[in-house]
Design a binder for these strands. Structure first.
Ligand code: MN
Ligand code: MN
Ligand code: ZN
Ligand code: ZN
Lengths: 159, 159
DNA sequence: CAAAAAGATGCAAAAGCTTCCCATTTTATT
DNA sequence: AATAAAATGGGAAGCTTTTGCATCTTTTTG
């Protein structure tokens, strides 16, 4: 329907933001819950608290903003956004998934075992070694999960 | 009580097997469930099916062998073994933990997204880059999780 | 070796997270 | 505006894992 075709929000393959257009492009109707959830994710990690949120966290923030959206809807929508490639899901630990907006650039995580702080990183050497390892074993590499667990600077104090 | 002191099962820091002694050394009583669970884990990956088992798998194998051990006990014992360093727990995916006997040498995993096959590997380059990354961010490195997801050779067929 | 103490087990109930069901509401299409 | 299609909310249900507790085993004591 639109001429030219490429998404305004995408710049040379790197997504720089999301909006209702992305919801529509995913074949989903533009509903209030979807828009609000996207807003929560977009605000996270930009002064609006941590970037990586559990479904429960998203739900709580919606309530704080006065939105009456069901928890089931939050789960459904987050899953749809993951399927649409708008959101990434990670399983850091403890059986709960965490979600973050997909910015298009892959990265891995460093998680503090005490306070839960999350630091993102990306290491070419690690990435390419993984390619090599998958190839050595005849596997195609579709994806990977790398989480480094340790103690952040503030959690290493003697106490 | 034993003279000399070092565990017979350990050879220069690399564990080569486990037995009742290890249960005792962990400060746990040597009970039938614990011995049987250890046997299941020891047999796994040596012709006795896959090496990495979910609690449910361990439980099922116990039933097959005619042992009437409760699932709650399987969970409790596996957790105790992990705490004692006899067993490793991994969260490959799907909310279920998998367990394997700890052989003392660290390794990571390649998991087939179709058939679930697991291949183990260990890459010094990746290990040392992780040390560097943790250090760069002021984190102590306590542990890490690396799982490469892809399709194994048999699951790449055109069909 | 028997008795006492300490610890472990099994079952069922409960938890914690996530998904499913379905009547009702909202969005998109005609 | 009417119709068709899709989404929502709330609660029930599902799954994996943990917990409570009476009973049974293992270990320690005498
Ligand atoms: Mn991230
Ligand atoms: Mn392994
Ligand atoms: Zn910390
Ligand atoms: Zn496969």
């Amino acid at each position: 329907m639109q001429p030219g075709g490429t998404n305004r929000q995408v710049d040379r393959g790197r997504r720089v933001g999301v909006d209702k257009t992305d919801i529509k492009q995913a074949g989903l109707k533009v509903t209030l819950p979807r828009v609000k959830i996207l807003e929560i994710l977009e605000a996270s990690g930009k002064g609006e608290g941590p970037r990586h949120l559990r479904a429960e966290d998203v739900y709580r923030r919606l309530l704080e903003r006065g939105e009456e959206i069901g928890l089931a809807t939050v789960y459904r929508v987050l899953t749809q956004f993951v399927e649409a490639g708008l959101v990434c899901r990670h399983n850091f630990e403890g059986g709960q998934s965490v979600f973050e907006l997909d910015r298009g650039a892959h990265h891995d995580h460093l998680v503090c075992m005490k306070c839960g702080q999350v630091v993102e990183f990306m290491d070419e050497a690690i990435e390419s070694r993984q390619e090599a390892i998958a190839a050595e074993h005849g596997f195609t590499l579709e994806d990977h999960t790398l989480v480094i667990h340790g103690f952040c600077p503030s959690c290493q104090a003697p106490g």
